[in-house]
Amino acid sequence: MVQAIRLEFFKMRGRCFGLLLLLCLLVQGAWLWWTFKSMSHLEIIQGWQHYLYQLPVLNAILLPVLMAVMASRAADIEHKGTMLRQLYTIQPAGKLLLSKLLYGGWYLVLLLAGQLLTMLLIGLYKGFYGPIPWGYFGCYLLFTFVITWCIYLVQLLLSLFITNQLIPLLVGAAGSFCGLFSLFFQQYWFSRLILWTYYSQLFLCGMNWDKETRITEMYWIQPDWAGFFLLTAGFLLTIVVGWRLLERKEC
């Protein structure tokens, strides 16, 4: 398996994954800087909470599209040169899925590390009040990693099964749209069934907005471990089903 992952890195040279991530980080960093540059005193006091409210919203908009593009690029190199036909005579189809999944996961770790660094730099520069809430940050990174990796997995499966990459990319764009509007229906049970809504379902911060004083007050929310475990179970199930379907795929 280690060899398969190494080869995945070798194959993907020049496919600009790093550049894509950097671009995403720049957009997110710019957005956060613009939001925080003219913060009021109250907002600075609640700075860390603002972060953990705004970042999931930004992630819900950007990451589904980014994952769709990354998965599409990872799968398209196999379609373009009809490599699947060759690879399936050498290694199990599931191994290919797993190596591509781990490859995507590695870049996701880099992205989240970049996000954390951006948060800390802006937070410390602006002088956010109170100690850094490492516990919440840890939960945020874990939740975001699993949601995004799961989206990457779904996109990867679509991209491996469908030769025309426009379809998976459209699914990615639709997922992004769905994630953004999930804030409006997160209280309904069916939102649990939609993967892209988990960015908002696993929020660690809530917001009270007083109409009269026009003051926004942030508050912590206990991590939704039930939702997280449901998502993780769905992720593992998707790997098993995807693996089996790929093994049965004729090419």
Partner: peptide, 19 residues
């Protein structure tokens, strides 16, 4: 023929050789 167009001929064979 199966190949990775963005890699050289030798790199393509190296991938198969390692696999």
């Amino acid at each position: 023929p199966s190949y990775y167009g963005h890699l050289s001929g030798e790199e393509n064979l190296h991938i198969l050789q390692k696999m």
